[in-house]
Amino acid sequence: MAKYILKRIFYLFLTLFIIATLTFFLMKMLPGTPFSNQNRMSPDQLKIVKAQYGLDQSVFVQYVRYMGGLLQGNLGTSFQFNNEPVTALIGQRLAPSMQIGAQAMILGTVLGILLGAVAAIRKNTWVDTLATFISILGLSIPSFVLAVLLQFYLAYKWHIYPVALWDNFQSSVLPTLALAALPLGNVARFMRTEMVDVMSSDYIELAKAKGNSSWKVVTKHALRNSLIPVVTIIGPMAVSVMTGSMVVENIFSIPGIGEQFVKSITTNDYPTIMGLTIFYSFLLVVIILIVDILYGFIDPRIRLGNGGKE
């Protein structure tokens, strides 16, 4: 296991290195510069500004510098936003994004598990149909559409929650709901499929033959066995929530990294785009690694190695 984790961490850094390199050179290919719309600058001024950001050097030197900075946890300096370091920008804005992201993941996963389990147990009944319908809605309606609808009805028309504000828990409710729909739909569908599979397996029949009531068969055997694989989709889902939050944060004016990313795109702020891309990728690979390791610990078949003789 330890060897496996070390190997995975090595690949993690290799992947991040490649991503950082690709991102860097992609950014160098960009057509516009952040200064292109500031015609007021004279060529001399432009030169000074470029030197200030190290843009007067060869691309290779810039690359080496950038990668060196990355190793020290330096993601570069923003062109906009008072020349703040990108890491500082992310640092200030991480908390709100993490809060709504985590809330949405937890809410969506828990509700999705319940919905999927109920659908599987009541397979081919109206309960199943309703649950399937809800999960399809969650999967299909883009989070930004849902966000706008929630904002309009729950905030603007009925004044239950603030329209666009970031201070207390109240203001995180609507973005959480908008972002929770996708994990809810995903988990519910996955859970239903897994559980239907498990429910038709031989060991469930044996559990029934032991004299377990239907309820106990579900709680003691079916649930655990169907929950384990659900862990595997948490990683990809965290990513969709993360990217979904870009627009949702915008709609609700939440000062998070998603909003920052969109802002940087519209202002051609390359260092921030680059830094956030690498940051997002880092989060993604780390989450997936954690989930995989977690899966190994939860599933005895992986934890204890495949010692069976089959």
Binding site: I19, L26, L30, V239, T243, I265, I273, I288
Partner: peptide
């Protein structure tokens, strides 16, 4: 390993 949407956005830029 890169979130899809980010690749898409980078390409669009």
């Amino acid at each position: 390993s890169v979130p899809n949407l980010i690749v898409v956005i980078l390409m669009m830029i």
